[in-house]
């Protein structure tokens, strides 16, 4: 536990609060890379995912793509790109985008797929155009799953951005790798704790976002209990209160 105290002392040490190698600089780098990647990956994945979800075309490809990417080792992808493109920001950015697209894509198309077909038929029957169906029915109803996809995509980005410093991209992972090279375990621990805090913070923000952005009507219909109820009729003999529904 002494090491943990050392790690916190390292974090709050004034010497580590400023400069090119200070915590704020590295944090800004980490956040900058993550946000940029999130924006680019979303710009690619959300329109494509919506197109797949709305038309139902290319679904098999999307499913196998998102499933197959799970087996792709992130570190290997990062390193092979770094060998090809040289040390710098390019390789990590491309690797991160490649890794973040599948979960966001999955969130986008599964969100559209989860919409009850009867709802879409009803929208078409009242005279909505295809564009209105997409923007006024499918997008709002698909939001919970899309945010879920963005959430796991962001976690993936924050985690892999930590590895990105292995090929010289900076970010909070820098403390872990520098600490390792100089046998400075408290510094490694400090870097790790900062990344964990960032990941949990992003988790919290997305949980909040889910509450704020998702239309109330969508939430109202979701049952919190997944257990399947019995199909038998509830008996009305004796005290009805004793019978569990």
């Amino acid at each position: 536990m002494n090491l943990l105290v050392d790690a916190f002392a390292w974090i709050f040490d004034p010497a580590h609060q400023a400069g090119a190698n200070g915590i704020p600089t590295r944090l800004v780098q980490h956040l900058g890379i993550s946000l940029l990647v999130l924006l680019v990956a979303s710009a690619i994945a959300i329109p494509v995912g919506y197109l797949i979800g709305h038309t139902g075309k290319g679904r098999t490809l999307a499913v196998s793509l998102t499933g197959g990417f799970r087996s792709l080792p992130t570190l290997g992808l990062l390193i092979i790109l770094a060998l090809w493109l040289g040390v710098g920001l390019e390789a990590p950015l491309i690797a991160l985008i490649v890794l973040a697209v599948p979960p966001i894509l999955a969130g986008a198309y599964s969100g559209f797929e989860a919409v009850d077909r009867r709802t879409i038929d009803a929208a078409r029957a009242v005279g909505m155009t295809e564009w209105q169906i997409v923007s006024k029915v499918e997008v709002p109803l698909g939001l919970p799953l899309l945010i879920g996809g963005l959430r796991s995509g962001t976690l993936q980005i924050i985690a892999t951005a930590t590895l990105a410093d292995y090929v010289g991209a900076g970010g909070l992972g820098h403390f872990i790798f520098v600490g390792q090279k100089s046998n400075d375990y408290p510094q490694m621990l400090a870097g790790s704790l900062l990344v964990i805090a960032l990941a949990l913070l992003s988790e919290g923000i997305f949980a909040l976002l889910q509450k704020l952005v998702v239309p109330r009507g969508v939430v109202a219909n979701q049952s919190t209990d997944v257990r399947r109820p019995s199909s038998r009729r509830v008996a009305v003999v004796g005290f009805p209160t004793e019978e569990r529904k």
């Binding site: 536990m1 090491l3 943990l4 976690l155 924050i158 985690a159 930590t162 590895l163 992972g173 872990i176 490694m188 621990l189 870097g191 790790s192 704790l193 990344v195 964990i196 990941a199 949990l200 992003s202 988790e203």
Partner: peptide, 14 residues
């Protein structure tokens, strides 16, 4: 599950 793997590998030893 939200904790990234590398930081977890570093924190677990303590």
């Amino acid at each position: 599950y939200a904790i990234p793997s590398l930081p977890l590998f570093v924190v677990l030893p303590i």
